[in-house]
Design a protein around this nucleic acid. Structure first.
Lengths: 347, 347
DNA sequence: ATGAAAGCGCTAACAA
DNA sequence: TTGTTAGCGCTTTCAT
């Protein structure tokens, strides 16, 4: 049983008093601003240390910077985002900037307030990872705050874009499977309620590329898409749908590793072997995909590089850059044991 | 090529002007405060909608609430934290509170500024998940801001605690393995640089319980602990260390599923079968542990319940509760295919 | 080089 | 019920 401590926090005024200088001087010192003598600096720094002063971010937000980068990500369960965050945080280290994250969730309805929350908290820069928001909203945010959008393909004049060449990646997977001799190749894609232009969304690009490549190999009749989610449950459900078809696929290309994990479970549960009966491929090359008893063929798109590039672009914008930059990583195929030639009778 | 839009945001004053009322009236309406006539309310709400006004969180922070819950978590890669966050967000839904997350990292040195960042941003409540900070720091934060600590066992008068009965959980695992006939049971634990009292940290409790139960079954001579990390890499390294021992264990109890995944990989790579040669058990019962081709025996501690309880406690404290609450979940064993009797010659 | 003072957008006494 | 006003802690002109 206690009462909340109502002792005021140490403020810039306390420091100024203690050091017998003006608050202006203290402010300049903590911002490394121009026009403070070394003596003044030392004196103030000593007072700061003695009093354990830390600037009050909310107060700063009203005049200057918050030294905060806001990251909107759909959900923390996808391990690919952890790769991105690792890259981002590594780049932010020792810059004085802190990254805060907020979950956008699976719908535009849930995402909108999450983005608002970041804007309302006056972050100095925003990274949106695979946002569902309409393009106009991204532009509006980008006009107000330095912004990087990761995972969407549209061009913008007001924010930077970091993305993977999803078309190339999907092509690698489908060609790989076709090269192994598969014809009945199915795809699991992600359902969204976005109002973004479809061709700007990565899961749409992956799905459309799958269809295109299939057609180019005269496999239009074999096209089979399950539209669920890029999650374990989604992959599980999607695979079950696909397995229930009269012409069962011999290979499943899941648009994300997360979905591939679920698909793997469904295939196992159906009493089928991977890759003996069915080959499975994913996308993102998450660390889990590399585990020996998962060993899923996947597409690597180097999340760490994407994350650290995003951070760099954000810092550049905060420093004043206004021209838009687009950064794209080239994906590569990482073949593993989950893909092999189809069973003889199905070849 | 654009210039940043310097159009001021809509403020409470703009709304007041537009509605021809005072800023106080607007403030009261947005806070649902006492003493506004229905007519006034309607008028203000209309103005808010017309202007697209949203309160400026930073400004609010200086006087009132930020409607923000800060969550410090070690790293987003651990999927168990996703369960906790799901529970938390579900409870926060429609309360007007937004959760923001910040990564604390693996060391106290990295964690300290993360916690500071939350405090400095004036969040209304803080949830710290498995923090490494010394107890005094937690108390200091708790005195300043409503706080819930998840995953540590110490009693505090100023903050609430949500935790799992780690002793019971570890006991379940070790007894399960002993019951299957194992004697050479090894453990993988987490290395930390915390200055917290060891018995307050969950990984220490799990490790000590492992030792105690081994001793109680006259297996003191078989105790083997690899101290790495509760991560995939950690589990991988730990298992390699354990496998290199002259008396190879027949079972490995990894203190967390994440580590168990890595251990699984190491065992496979060593050409050994699970559970044929070696049984593996984890902790947390993450969804991935349930995948058929991982199928790791684990301990369930219901992260969603922990998360939603944490949110509830936080909201209660924000509403004024000052007495400390402790909430503990009872863990249960989820046996899966990764654990079985040891090979005959090793029984 | 240093400091006084205005004001960022909001809340909460207090007055009317 | 409604409005006036004094700050919250900080940054930033602008004097000195």
């Amino acid at each position: 049983m206690t009462t909340r401590d109502r002792r005021r926090r140490v403020t810039i005024a306390d420091v100024a008093n203690h050091a017998q200088v003006s608050t202006t001087a203290v402010s300049k010192v903590i911002r490394n601003a121009y026009g403070v003598s070394p003596a003044m600096r030392d004196r103030v720094k000593a007072a700061i240390d003695e009093l354990g002063y830390r600037p009050h971010a909310a107060a700063r937000a009203m005049r200057g910077r918050t030294f905060t980068i806001g990251v909107m990500l759909p959900h923390i369960r996808n391990p690919f985002f952890a790769d991105i965050l690792d890259g981002l945080n590594a780049q932010l280290d020792d810059t004085g900037y802190q990254a805060i994250m907020i979950q956008g969730g699976a719908t535009q309805k849930a995402e909108a307030p999450a983005i608002d929350a970041l804007v309302d908290r006056q972050v100095d820069g925003i990274l949106m990872i695979s946002p569902l928001a309409p393009r106009a909203r991204l532009e509006a945010v980008g006009r107000e705050i330095p912004t990087v959008v990761l995972g969407r393909h549209e061009r913008s004049a007001v924010y930077d874009a970091v993305f993977d060449d999803d078309e190339a990646g999907a092509e690698l997977v489908v060609n790989h499977l076709i090269g192994l001799g598969h014809r009945r190749i199915a795809h699991i894609t992600h359902q969204d309620n976005s109002t973004a232009r479809p061709s700007d969304l990565l899961h749409i690009i992956r799905a459309e590329t799958y269809e295109r490549v299939m057609r180019e190999h005269d496999l239009a009749a074999e096209i089979a898409i399950a539209t669920t989610y890029y999650t374990e449950e989604g992959g599980y459900d999607g695979a079950q749908q696909l397995l229930a078809r009269s012409r069962r696929p011999t290979a499943i290309f899941a648009g994300a590793d997360q979905a591939a994990f679920g698909a793997l479970a469904a295939v196992h549960e159906a009493g089928l072997a991977v890759p003996g009966d069915i080959s499975i491929a994913g996308y993102d090359n998450t660390r889990l995909a590399a585990l020996p008893n998962i060993a899923i063929t996947s597409i690597d798109q180097d999340g760490a590089v994407m994350g650290h590039t995003a951070a760099r672009l954000l810092l550049e914008r905060i420093e004043g850059r206004t021209s838009a930059v687009r950064f794209s990583v080239t994906p590569s195929l990482v073949p593993r044991r989950s893909t092999a030639a189809p069973p003889p009778q199905d070849g």
